[in-house]
Computed example of a mutant assay.
Amino acid sequence: MSISGAQQEQNDQLAQAFVQFAVDAGVLRFGEFKTKAGRMSPYFFNAGLFDDGAKMARLAEFYAKAIVASGMEFDMVFGPAYKGIPLAATVAVELARLGKNVPFAYNRKEAKDHGEGGTLVGAPLRGRVLIIDDVMSAGTAARESIALIQAAGATPHAVAIALDRQEKATENGKDVDHSAVQYVRNQLGLQVCAIATLSDLLSFLGSRGGEGDMAQHHERVLAYRQRYGVND
């Protein structure tokens, strides 16, 4: 779906504001961090550190604005355990505040054998489902969510994440030429909406080259992307 120049500018502004928010909240950090793929990354994004009411409310606002701006159509939201659970709940609240009231559901890691039982909690999975998660490393969580949604008779339709790292995924310990987001889009056929991307992070760092260590961070993140990044 093509977007206008004005809409792209709004998306860019939203992404820059989100990166600033993530840095201020201590969720986006710079240094040396080992990723699941075994790479030494110069930055780390830990959505688990959005850990109080004010941060979660602001985070949900960013998600909801990005989702609405994307133009994606969906009938309900789903949060994969565990980080996706509070995300789905708070984003559903914010979407309702913006005038789009939709049901939400989430899953348990372990099936419950008493009460209502099963692994699914919340509204019944129906129609086109938007999966809400923090980041996408290998697409594993997305595949698990897709299987749950399909088993319930609903349609996995789209995924919303906070940050697209835009880097090569790994399969069997080896780098491949696509990212997890590209895999979900091209192989699994789901739309993906990200509040911000690695390109947005680089733009943020580049615009603050004279502020403290930002120039050094920009250089290191750019080198990381040149080594592990994917073509858009």
Rank of each mutant, 00 (worst) to 15 (best):
Q7G: 13
Q10N: 09
A15L: 13
V27S: 04
K36I: 08
K36C: 03
G38C: 15
R39G: 12
P42Q: 01
Y43M: 11
G48V: 07
F50I: 08
F50R: 05
D52P: 10
G53E: 03
K55N: 13
A60M: 10
E61G: 15
A66D: 01
I67F: 14
I67D: 12
G71K: 08
E73C: 01
M76I: 07
A81V: 13
K83F: 00
K83D: 11
I85G: 00
I85H: 00
P86K: 03
L87R: 03
V91T: 09
V91Y: 13
V93L: 15
E94V: 00
A96I: 09
P103A: 01
V129K: 09
L130R: 03
I132D: 01
A138T: 15
G139H: 02
A142L: 15
E144C: 03
I146N: 03
A147T: 10
L148T: 11
A151Y: 12
A154L: 14
A158Y: 04
A160I: 01
A160R: 04
I161M: 12
D164T: 05
R165P: 10
K174Y: 06
D175M: 06
H178S: 03
Q182V: 11
Q182F: 05
Q191V: 00
Q191W: 12
Q191D: 14
I195S: 05
T197H: 13
L201S: 08
G209A: 13
H218F: 11
G229R: 06
